[in-house]
Design a binder for these strands. Structure first.
Length: 104
DNA sequence: TGGGTGACTAAGT
DNA sequence: CACTTAGCCACCC
């Protein structure tokens, strides 16, 4: 399983773990929280190491969860009462306007 | 060491 | 409101 987690990875995971239930952050927000704007690198890290953190609390700025994981994420959102916005087509997105969290 | 890649973002159509 | 284009930066091999 390798365990690099020198800096970036550790910090990303730390921020994600600091997000309380019912709240969420965008990848860019997490990157900014650690002093970087590498939103994509955050996603890369999440895809690889996110299995140990509440990855569903980290989503795109659009409010859409990662492709192929929207179903699993939805279960968590319903469980944690995360504010959601449903589209007419049946698609949903997290209401970041309300759920946005900042690691104090 | 360096190239290719992506769980991204903002702006334009 | 949804899709497309180009720019970004760190991760992995």
């Amino acid at each position: 399983m390798t365990a690099p987690a020198d800096d970036f990875v550790s910090r990303v995971l730390a921020v994600v773990e600091s997000i309380p239930p019912g709240r969420a952050m965008s990848y860019g927000d997490v990157a900014a929280a650690i002093g970087s704007r590498a939103a994509r690198a955050v996603g890369q890290t999440m895809a690889y190491y996110g299995s140990d953190v509440p990855w569903w609390r980290v989503i795109r700025s659009s409010g859409h969860p990662p492709e192929n994981h929207e179903t699993a994420a939805l279960e968590q959102y319903r469980t944690e009462s995360t504010p959601l916005i449903w589209s007419a087509a049946g698609h949903y997105r997290v209401d970041l306007r309300r759920a946005r969290w900042s690691p104090d």
